[in-house]
């Protein structure tokens, strides 16, 4: 579980996050949604520890980010996995090497164990036939699956996904969303997904935090968001003509 307590973040004089207070639950797919420029990415980067907050604190299963030393930060960051928007796979490595990479860099386990562990996750994301392929030989959906496998190969407690289905067709996007949700349940991870895709919100949004201009406007589940009386949430959810028609 990650608790965000009254955090404030600005760049020079530009206020990006203001008094954000929320909880992201373990074993649930937590979504941060909002329009472009709402502060989603900055909040995600604060949670990842890539940005320092100006005030407030973040609690990782009760451990506060405040006054954290370098070693403690490193310890927390090694419990995190991240799926980037563009997958961020290493071009020169094949699928197996990409997934093995965190094990090679951060563990002392022997070669056989590394391969076994990597293969287990390759099978989990259904990429058994693509082990030897380079990222450039994979489709967008396959690249996302490799990125997911690489993010969870270290058995992280926290999984962060930045727009995991951007650039994917609707069908593949749902497959990726479902895969993330299954993995979240299976490994009991605190998963936080940054998204502005309403399909994801409806499919896997178990805990949704809606941001607008750096403020937390609303929090609830996918069922609640469709019935929300909040005008700003309503404008965001029903911004597409299709959803407006379906509402009627």
């Amino acid at each position: 579980m990650i608790e965000v307590k009254n955090i404030y973040k600005s760049f020079d004089k530009t206020e990006v996050l203001n008094k954000i207070e929320t909880v992201f639950y373990r074993g649930k797919t937590n979504l941060i949604i909002g329009q472009s420029g709402s502060g989603k990415t900055v909040l995600l980067k604060c949670l990842l520890g890539l940005y320092e907050v100006n005030s407030g604190e973040i609690l990782y299963d009760g451990i506060s980010s405040k006054n954290m030393g370098i070693n403690e930060k490193l310890e927390i960051s090694r419990q995190m996995g991240m799926v980037f928007q563009g997958s961020a796979l290493f071009d020169s490595m094949n699928v197996l090497e990409n997934i093995r990479f965190p094990l090679d860099m951060l563990t002392e386990i022997d070669e056989n164990e590394k391969n076994e562990r990597a293969l287990k996750f390759i099978e989990r994301v259904n990429l058994k036939d693509a082990i030897e392929k380079l990222p450039s030989e994979l489709s967008g959906g396959m690249q996302k699956r490799v990125a997911i496998a690489r993010a969870i190969v270290m058995n992280p407690k926290y999984l962060f996904c930045d727009e995991p289905n951007s650039g994917l067709d609707p069908k593949t996007a749902i497959v990726i969303d479902k895969l993330i949700q299954e993995i979240t349940k299976e490994y009991n991870i605190t998963t936080i997904i940054n998204s502005h895709d309403m399909n994801s919100v409806i499919e896997i949004g178990e805990n949704i935090v809606f941001l607008k201009e750096g403020l937390k406007i609303w929090q609830g589940t996918n069922k609640e968001i469709l019935k929300s009386k909040n005008k700003e949430v309503d404008d965001f959810v029903y911004s597409s003509e299709l959803l407006k028609k379906l509402r009627v």
Binding site: L48, L50, L74, S77, R78, M80, M82, F84, Q85, G86, A88, L89, F90, D91, F101, P102, M105, L106, F160
Partner: peptide
């Protein structure tokens, strides 16, 4: 530069790896 643009350097940092040393 390509690693920077495609977030591969960010991926290294998130893993807790000193990307400059690597």
């Amino acid at each position: 530069g390509t690693m920077r643009v495609t977030e591969q350097i960010d991926a290294l940092e998130v893993m807790g790896i000193n990307s400059l040393n690597y």
